[in-house]
Design a protein around this nucleic acid. Structure first.
Length: 116
DNA sequence: GTCGGCACACGAT
DNA sequence: ATCGTGTGCCGAC
């Protein structure tokens, strides 16, 4: 983490701050950590802390799973496991900014509607 | 060693 | 559906 690029560390740190049972969008992280959504995605895609950073809690702003190195099925399974039944989005303060996070329920619901 | 171009798990228009 | 965004990495000067 120390020897990682500045931006990378920031993004990873932001991802780590996502509370259990909630998910954050790439755009939200991008807004909180700075930079662009693609940059966040890139960091996650090549993140050196794959098993450490809860990248499964990072989804698209469209509420789709986006991508996951371990497979979208696993990602979905993890999200379902961490679901806490919260139904309202929340804002997590991050380094002076706020990271908008959504309940896992929201994603699951959207996915159900999409998969329908 | 530095500059330019390509790739990326997205977002907004 | 297309362009924009920011970073990382590879290849060329």
């Amino acid at each position: 983490m120390e020897h990682l690029p500045k931006y990378t560390g920031k993004v990873l740190k932001t991802a780590l701050l996502i509370p259990t049972g909630y998910v954050a969008s790439y755009g939200g992280i991008a807004k909180a950590a700075g930079g662009g959504a693609r940059a966040v995605g890139n960091v996650m895609a090549s993140n050196p802390f794959a098993p450490i950073v809860p990248c499964h809690r990072v989804v698209c702003s469209d509420m789709t799973l986006g991508g996951y190195g371990g497979g979208l099925s696993l990602k979905l399974a993890l999200l379902k496991r961490e679901a806490r039944g919260c139904r309202s989005e929340k804002e997590v303060p991050i380094d002076g900014r706020k990271l908008l996070v959504f309940p896992v329920e929201t994603v699951l619901n959207k996915l159900s509607k999409t998969y329908a």
